[in-house]
Amino acid sequence: MVRIKNRYVVVRIVPEKPTNILKIDDAVLAKSVLRNVKKYYGDYGLGTVEHGFRVKYCNERTKIAIMRCLHRSHRTLTSTLPLITMIGDVRAKFHTLYVGATIIHCNKFIINHQQRFLDEMVGQIASAKERKDFIKRVMEFDLEQ
């Protein structure tokens, strides 16, 4: 049996002006990444990346997203990410956190990463209820599995 090799790229979206909630959904993210691939690599690049490309996950609070692409084209994708300065209509950049071969490992990485993020953020929230909500929202990633 032939196994289709994928690469999962975990990125953090860093907007130019810090905001709490980012209004970017999967479709907008996918569209802007593919548009930039076309800009920098032309039709050939878009063709190789588009096949198998998908945004698997996008959290608007932690601003973390997972993108999947085929193993053949992942270098095209990862080298495009630093050149992007606009996502949708927000000025933002990508910060690549991790490139993994299975989504399980990406999950493990993200859970660790979000734990650290929580440690930073929870201190800033005063009321207990809000804090509970916040933790739930951030960690809802685990429930999806």
């Binding site: 270098r75 990862t78 080298s79 990410l81 630093p82 950049k93 990508f94 690549t96 956190l97």
Partner: peptide, 14 residues
């Protein structure tokens, strides 16, 4: 805003 993470820079090598 022009700074990129180290892994991003390494990827730019491509």
């Amino acid at each position: 805003f022009e700074l990129r993470g180290p892994y991003d820079v390494a990827n730019l090598a491509y």
